[in-house]
Design a protein around this nucleic acid. Structure first.
Lengths: 318, 318
DNA sequence: TATATTTACGTAACCAGTTACGTAATTATT
DNA sequence: AATAATTACGTAACTGGTTACGTAAATATA
């Protein structure tokens, strides 16, 4: 079965399951060999009860990392075999406290030698390995706790896709996209204003010819995002970042960030010291992005747009 | 959940299963993220078919290490989704050849990026670990192939129990045991002969007083095996190993070997150069043991016992 | 004190695998 | 050519877990 050699780490989950199955198979026969009347699947429940007096179903479930119905079923089976006994908690009528019977305690004694032998055998295997599996599992679990596999893969995807995104200068062929993509988000949250219409319909006249710039994010040949840098007539600010929009189907590729960074570079080339923007706090992902780009909130500026309730600036270090 | 810290490597199987479950959980959402219409459990089947043209159910099962009913079920599901198509083998009417449909092939193209991202993410995790889990699994599987966990545990058990076995000199209190345990195996396979009766009933007179010896294996205070060294009146041999018997309930603890080794030492102390024995080839485990102890078959000796059809000797190096 | 929320736990249904078994086709043997 | 053994595969039942959901008890809140 050289399947795993070919498919590689992609199937690490499957491989783990198969290894665990192979080991559990032997487990049943090991119990038999020691004449211990315990099903392997009972072991975790049995173990925690052998270490403590009585425990409720959920307490056991939490300790061994099973769901409570699973523990419930296992306990029922073990009660039927006379290994455990149940009794309602006197203080809390919901709780079903479980405890080892005399028979159960006898098994706990018998099983001690089995523990020792199995632990020795497994330990010997681990010691013979160059890569210690027990510690490997521990580390792997730790890493998964820090960041799930899903998140890790998501990041890989984003990074790979970001590499396929190109930021290019505006070209008349992007005019329709530039207009549509901005109208979309404005109409979704607000209403179009006159200022929007003029600049979206005549970007050359109202943005480029005035010394501003427009950048377009292109993914697989298609425009997926835009951002404008508009020349301002202000003593404090040179340029305004505006008309930033990313196509919904291209979200999650880090395009906003790439556009923002490219606009920042462009402004720097144009000799700007500070850039300005206006937005609305209901656009949470946008505000978030601006913050990640380094923009800080400022107050005391007037705006021609009704929809804006927040102003931000970014100081450009050369 | 510090359960595993307490119970240790005993629960390595359970721990593997849980880790694999945690990973499979994310798998479903990863497929979703890539908009690939594939259930994670379909992946192994899908993968082998994407690498080859058509394959029969059992061929797939063998390759991915599943049972054939499992593959059969998965294939049915995938056919229902239009990912695979089946057609009877023309040469062999029993075979059900499965192949990717056009839709399936399209998925195979889509999934390539997912492979890459997942492989990268997992590889990054492995690279961050001091103990590489992928290689650890590989090594562990290799070790299990060499010798199963069951066998390893069996050996541990045997060794531990052998340590609890003591070999002591004969004492009249073992007389009843000496007689009974030998009668048992003789009656099971043969019939008691006059020579048996006299030596079993009067070991002092017929064995010890003539310069021989009897050793008893004691386990947890109980006699569980015996072996006699009988002085011979022969130009070639000094002593005969005889009346070796181990209690059935104490089998598998290596008691025969311990007795044999102890008898060998005893013979050496008594100045023997060679020891002799007679047995019957139907007693396979016994012959096996004698061989392991170093006895070699010899021919040309007469025996007072009807049941014996093989003679062996062991040369004692000082 | 009445009501809403949370907690403990059991039952039911599901899931992804298995083993057991039956049937039909093929291959080997007499 | 007839018969036996093997192989391919499907169905059914089982296994060891899960999630979903309902009920009853306990606790928090108005």
């Amino acid at each position: 079965m050289n399947f795993f050699d070919n498919v590689g780490v992609m199937a690490i989950g499957t491989r783990l399951r198969m290894l665990s199955e192979k080991m559990s198979e032997d487990a049943a026969r090991i119990y038999e060999m020691y004449e211990v009347d315990l099903k392997p699947k009972w072991f975790p429940v049995f173990y925690v009860l052998s270490q403590s007096k009585e425990k409720s179903i959920t307490a056991i479930a939490n300790e061994i990392g099973h769901s409570h119905p699973s523990v419930s079923k296992i306990v029922r089976e073990m009660v039927r075999e006379g290994i455990l006994s149940e009794k309602k908690d006197t203080a809390d009528g919901r709780k079903n406290n479980v405890i080892l019977t005399t028979k159960g305690k006898k098994i706990a004694d018998q099983i001690l030698e089995q523990y020792r032998d199995v632990a020795h055998a497994v330990q010997a295997m681990l010691d013979q390995s160059r890569h210690n599996m027990w510690q490997a599992i521990e580390e792997f679990e730790f890493l998964l706790e820090q960041k799930s596999l899903l998140e890790r893969v998501k990041e890989e995807k984003k990074q790979r896709e970001a590499e396929k995104v190109q930021i290019v200068s505006f070209d008349p062929k992007y005019q329709a996209f530039f207009k549509r993509i901005n109208e979309e988000w404005i109409n979704a949250y607000f209403v179009m204003e006159e200022t929007d219409r003029t600049s979206l319909e005549n970007p050359k006249e109202y943005i480029l010819d005035k010394g501003g710039d427009i950048l377009v994010a292109v993914y697989e040949g298609e425009p997926v995002g835009v951002c404008a840098l508009i020349k301002m007539d202000d003593p404090e600010y040179d340029y305004e970042l505006a008309k930033m929009a990313v196509s919904p189907k291209a979200k999650g590729k880090g395009i906003g960030w790439l556009l923002g960074k490219a606009i920042e570079d462009r402004a720097r080339v144009l000799g700007a010291k500070k850039i300005y923007l206006e937005s609305n706090t209901i656009l949470k992902p946008a505000i978030n992005l601006y913050q990640k780009l380094g923009f800080k909130k400022v107050i005391g500026h007037t705006t021609p747009y009704k929809r804006c309730n927040i102003q931000m600036e970014l100081e450009l270090k050369p």
